[in-house]
């Protein structure tokens, strides 16, 4: 019989989460900066990071809020971007301690990000609640702290520098997708198709009625959909591909 709270497991999880927490700080810093320079109050920027705990989804959603988009567009965009967590949650569900209660599952699920998933996937044996709780704690604190710092510093930064920081997030997205695309042709094609469609929708006047959020949704569904039809991934190779991802 496993103990409900195992301190050793918890500390082991905390240690695994530390590098993730540190890595999150510059990314969430940029988020805090962006949200506040877009007109949101500091507490709201931190509130977004605490409740969403995700990068691409909350960056896109916050951009849409700042742009004054509608609820439907915001909902669909963030949902599509975050759909990938379903796969990670599924994979984790095969590995966790089967005696975990519903409440414990609800808490552990909140902390699933690309990085916590990658770290816990490398872990041998059954994943206990104590371990998972320790693992997600650091990243949650790191993500919110970075946001708070960026939000507070936003007004103190010179305009030329805060303008330059606008490219940071996109730079990180590029850093996430290029290395795996170098190794996998299907991934490279998926990215190229999706980028091509996003550009077509943006620049061809016929499609100018499509807003930014829907543009990303359409490009994603077509890019990933065409990729799945042309290059379906055979079993076994699943795990490795996800581990290479570095988005939160």
């Amino acid at each position: 019989m496993r103990k409900r709270f195992d301190k050793k497991e918890f500390v082991h999880g905390l240690k695994g989460g530390m590098p993730i927490a540190i890595g999150y700080i510059p990314v969430s810093f940029t988020f805090g900066l962006m949200a506040v320079s877009g007109g949101l109050p500091v507490w709201m920027a931190v509130f977004i990071s605490l409740t969403n705990l995700t990068s691409a989804g909350q960056f896109a959603g916050t951009n849409l809020i700042i742009a004054g988009a509608g609820f439907l567009e915001i909902t669909l965009t963030t949902f599509i971007i975050n759909i990938r967590y379903m796969l990670m949650s599924l994979s984790l569900s095969q590995r966790i301690d089967k005696s975990m209660t519903l409440g414990e599952r609800l808490i552990a699920a909140f902390g699933i990000t690309d990085e916590t998933f990658a770290v816990s996937s490398m872990e041998a044996g059954i994943l206990t609640y104590s371990y998972l709780l320790g693992l997600i704690l650091g990243p949650i604190v790191g993500w919110s702290t970075g946001t708070l710092l960026g939000a507070l510093i936003s007004s103190a930064l010179p305009v030329s520098l805060s303008g330059a920081m606008g490219i940071a997030l996109y730079g990180m997205f590029i850093a996430i997708i290029i290395p795996p695309a170098k190794k996998s042709k299907p991934l490279a094609y998926v990215i190229l198709i999706s980028v091509a469609i996003a550009c077509i929708l943006k620049y061809i006047p016929l499609f100018s009625i499509i807003s930014a959020g829907f543009r990303v949704i359409i490009a994603t569904i077509l890019g990933a959909g065409i990729g799945a039809i042309l290059f379906p991934i055979e079993e076994n190779s699943k795990e490795e591909n996800i581990k290479e991802g570095e988005t939160i």
């Binding site: 759909i83 990938r84 998926v190 990215i191 999706s194 980028v195 550009c199 990933a224 699943k238």
Partner: peptide, 17 residues
């Protein structure tokens, strides 16, 4: 496969243009 390609497609479309 679709679920696995989604993060890459989405980050590409978010980044460019």
């Amino acid at each position: 496969s679709f679920l696995q390609y989604v993060p890459y497609a989405v980050l590409g479309a978010l980044t460019f243009p």
